[in-house]
């Protein structure tokens, strides 16, 4: 690995992990563990709970991870990849170095994506172990492919959402607001509208790839029902991810170090 890539990786990982933002999202990722543990304690005390085992796990994955943590974490970290340096005035240091701009953006993107996937994977795996272990080792082994499939879809989700929000961060001065509208408005509303429009969301394709429907029995399945095949969903997601990344690299090639020059003018 060349020194510039190594330096970028170290810097990106360090800034993501050792930050208030990193702590907050670690807490968000751990929250479902606490909920699952609480439900297990209630069950152990004989309190009837509406969900348990793999149904609980699937609900957490669908509603919490895909519906909340994935869009929010990729928005905050994706937008911040370049926007933080632009707003913070440190962009001249990066752009003035002999690092190809494509490398500058892609190394930071993939390093951040790996960290975010780790965060989501830890959240999902923790809930899986705490929730499904109620049924014993047999249940864990039986449902393990579900976890593995979810981890793969989470990876795809991190990459595509991350690339989308990275692009927003490069193109817009105030990308967080637009990102929130996209991530929680467009994605959650249009994804459930019948017809072709939902194919313009990432969430619809991600849900198509998930190995299970969840929530109140059959309700989410009915809401997400489509005739799209998993192969088509995968192709759409790869297409979107590559498109957003290519556009991001092009945008990065044109970005300028701001502030001092403009302020003087």
């Amino acid at each position: 690995m060349d020194p510039a890539t190594a330096a970028l990786l170290r810097h990106t990982i360090r800034r993501a992990v050792f930050s208030v933002r990193g702590l907050v999202f670690a807490a968000f990722a751990a929250f479902p563990w606490a909920v699952t543990l609480l439900l297990r304690i209630l069950v152990a005390r004989g309190v009837p709970v509406p969900l348990g085992g793999v149904s609980l796990y699937a609900s957490v994955v669908l509603l919490y991870l895909f519906g909340f943590l994935l869009p929010l974490s990729t928005l905050v970290f994706g937008v911040g990849l370049v926007a933080d340096d632009r707003e913070g005035g440190t962009l001249p240091y990066l752009l003035g170095r002999p690092v190809p701009r494509a490398k500058l953006v892609l190394v930071r993107f993939f390093a951040t994506a790996l960290l975010l996937w780790g965060l989501h994977a830890a959240s999902a795996a923790g809930v899986f172990l705490l929730g499904v272990s109620e049924g014993g080792a047999g249940a864990l082994l039986r449902e393990a492919p579900v976890l593995l499939a979810d981890l793969a879809v989470l990876a795809l989700g991190v990459l595509t959402y991350g690339a989308l929000f990275l692009l927003l961060g490069l193109l817009l001065r105030k990308p967080l607001f637009v990102g929130l509208l996209l991530g929680f408005g467009w994605e959650n509303l249009v994804g459930y509208i019948p017809g072709f429009l939902k194919r313009l969301t990432l969430l619809f394709h991600l849900h198509t790839l998930l190995p299970h429907g969840a929530g109140p029995q059959g309700l989410v399945e009915q809401m997400l029902a489509s005739t799209e095949s998993r192969a088509a969903a995968f192709v759409f997601l790869v297409f979107y991810g590559v498109l957003f990344l290519v556009l991001s690299v092009l945008a990065m090639g044109r970005i300028e170090a701001p502030a001092a020059a403009e302020a003087e003018a």
Binding site: P3, A4, R10, Y93, A257, A259
Partner: peptide
């Protein structure tokens, strides 16, 4: 640059070493 902006959490020599790394100098 004229602007007084840094990655404030870094130490001085660490900041300089990071940018040296970005210039292709091994750690």
């Amino acid at each position: 640059p004229a602007s007084d902006r840094f990655w404030e959490e870094m130490r001085g020599v660490e900041f300089v070493a990071f940018l040296a790394g970005l210039s292709g100098i091994p750690r």
